[in-house]
Simulated scan of single mutants.
Amino acid sequence: MKKIIFLLFAILPFHNTQAQEIKTMTYFQNDTLKLDLDLYLPQKKTNEKIPLIIFAFGGGFSGGERTSEKDFGMFMAKNGYAVASISYSLYMKGKDFGCKGTLTEKIKAIQIGVSDMWQATSFLIENANKYNLDTSKIFISGISAGAEIGFHASFWDYKLMNLYKNNLPENFKYKGFIGGSGAIQDINLITKEKAIPMLLAHGNNDDTVPYAAGSHRSCPTNASGWLILFGSYAVYNHMHDLHKDIELITFCGGGHEFSGYLFHDGKQYVLDFVNDVLKGKKFESHLIIPSGKKGPGSGKYLFCE
């Protein structure tokens, strides 16, 4: 039985926080590319290893900054978690990532971003002892394009899809995934064996990244940039069928403007999620938050199931 929660107002308190330490470092460099990350570290109290959340920003693979979610990194560090906010290759900069773009280029942009994420993960694993990180408790997260990176990094076969060297540990698996308005190309990549706990948030009226199954940017099927994607609601139903742990926050009537919610106003949800996963708690829930938008011409608020 699915657990559905209706919430009229979701105003979550959070404290003004400050990370104990922020380190900027280069995790990948070759003749043409240099990629950095910012590592937010909590105050070290004991020799206990620190769980890590790796974060990828949004921006359609053409823009965005790793520093955009500094408050999220500071908040999680204040609460005992390390956060690595990464830069990644903006392959679509100056190119069309929409309906008039090229399908192969759009897929390549995702693959490059995912490969960068795997490089960052490998770098952090290799340097885990230096920063007291727990390599068995690495979460992955992202907004929009960053959430697409997170989805595919979690479920693609890195030995086949990695554009760089295959350097992740054998049978490596992220501990959980936190995604804002993301989607995956093939939902069948999420199997019982590969499934990891997820916390997802999405507007059900998102015309940029589909909430359920649909085309990216709502492109028609005859568009050169037509790409089918499975969004948060499709993933939620799929995980339900697999009897795997998932939480979905739906903004009823909301669009892509809610993609950053979990890392802005919803940081407490993220904290509760990672705490529950690390405690081994089992869960499945669907939280529905009215966005305040009304149905076309009806004067009534949209209804979400």
Rank of each mutant, 00 (worst) to 15 (best):
C252I: 03
S141R: 00
H256G: 11
I125R: 07
I249N: 05
L248A: 03
D265P: 01
G260Y: 00
L168F: 15
H238P: 05
T208W: 13
V235T: 12
G113V: 10
K130W: 12
C219E: 07
K93I: 12
L35Y: 07
K137S: 09
M1R: 04
I143R: 01
F14Y: 13
F177T: 04
I288G: 02
M161A: 13
F28H: 06
K34L: 09
I112S: 07
L200P: 02
I288S: 02
V83L: 01
H286M: 04
L199K: 06
A183V: 01
A128Y: 07
S224C: 07
L133G: 01
F61C: 14
G180F: 04
H216M: 12
N205H: 13
A77E: 05
I54Y: 00
C252A: 15
G94V: 12
L160F: 10
D96L: 13
L7F: 07
D276K: 14
K173D: 09
N171C: 15
G255R: 06
L248M: 14
L168K: 11
N205M: 06
G182W: 00
D186Q: 07
I246Y: 05
W118S: 02
F139R: 02
G292Q: 02
G142I: 10
V277Y: 00
P220V: 02
H152P: 10
H240G: 04
R217C: 05
A223V: 12
T191N: 10
T26H: 01
N188Q: 11
